[in-house]
Amino acid sequence: MEVFFLMMGLWLVVAVALGMRRPTGFGGAQLRARLDAVYGEPHELVRVTPAAFPEADLEFYDRVRRELEQRKYRWLADVEDLTLSRIYPQNRTFLRLFSDAGGMIRASAYHLHPRGVVISMLQLVQLFPRHLRVIELVSEIQGTFLVTSNTHGVDRLEPPPEAKVERLPLQTPISEVIERHQTRITELVRAHPERSPVTFETFEDVLASIGRAHVTMARHRQKLGGLSRDELERLKGRPLSPTEEAFLREVQGKPEGEPTSS
Rank of each mutant, 00 (worst) to 15 (best):
S209L: 01
P54L: 07
T24L: 15
T183Y: 09
L248M: 01
R229P: 04
A17P: 01
P255N: 01
V48P: 03
K164F: 13
E158A: 15
L82A: 13
V134G: 00
H43Y: 06
E2M: 11
D81N: 15
E41V: 08
F53E: 07
Q182E: 15
E231H: 02
S261A: 14
Q142F: 01
S196A: 12
G27Q: 08
E250D: 15
R221N: 10
V38P: 05
R249W: 00
D57E: 02
L232Q: 01
E136G: 10
E204F: 08
E162R: 12
E158V: 14
M1K: 08
T172Q: 04
M217W: 08
Y61T: 03
H214D: 02
L168H: 02
A218G: 15
R65A: 11
K236I: 12
V134L: 03
A51G: 13
R195T: 09
V147F: 01
T144Y: 12
T93L: 14
V14C: 11
L240Y: 02
A51R: 15
E233W: 03
E256T: 11
G143F: 01
P173R: 04
A52G: 07
V13S: 07
I87K: 08
V177H: 05
V189H: 06
F247V: 12
I178T: 09
P173C: 00
V189K: 10
L188Y: 14
R22H: 14
Y88V: 10
E44N: 15
L68R: 00
R219Q: 14
F94G: 02
G102H: 11
I210S: 11
L122E: 10
V138W: 00
S228D: 01
F53K: 04
H192Y: 13
R92V: 06
G19W: 04
S108Q: 12
L95V: 06
H181R: 06
F203W: 13
R184H: 09
E2C: 10
H152C: 09
V14M: 13
D57G: 02
R156C: 08
V117T: 14
L146D: 02
V79K: 00
L227G: 00
G27W: 08
R180G: 14
P50S: 05
L97H: 03
V154R: 07
A246D: 10
T260I: 12
P50H: 07
G103S: 00
L146N: 05
M121D: 13
P193S: 04
V165F: 00
E67W: 07
G225F: 06
R167Q: 14
A246K: 10
S99I: 09
V251P: 06
L95R: 05
R74P: 00
Y73E: 01
E245K: 06
I105A: 03
V118E: 13
T216Q: 13
R96G: 03
G257N: 04
L84A: 12
P259M: 06
F26P: 04
F94R: 03
R71A: 08
R238L: 12
R221H: 12
T83M: 07
G28S: 00
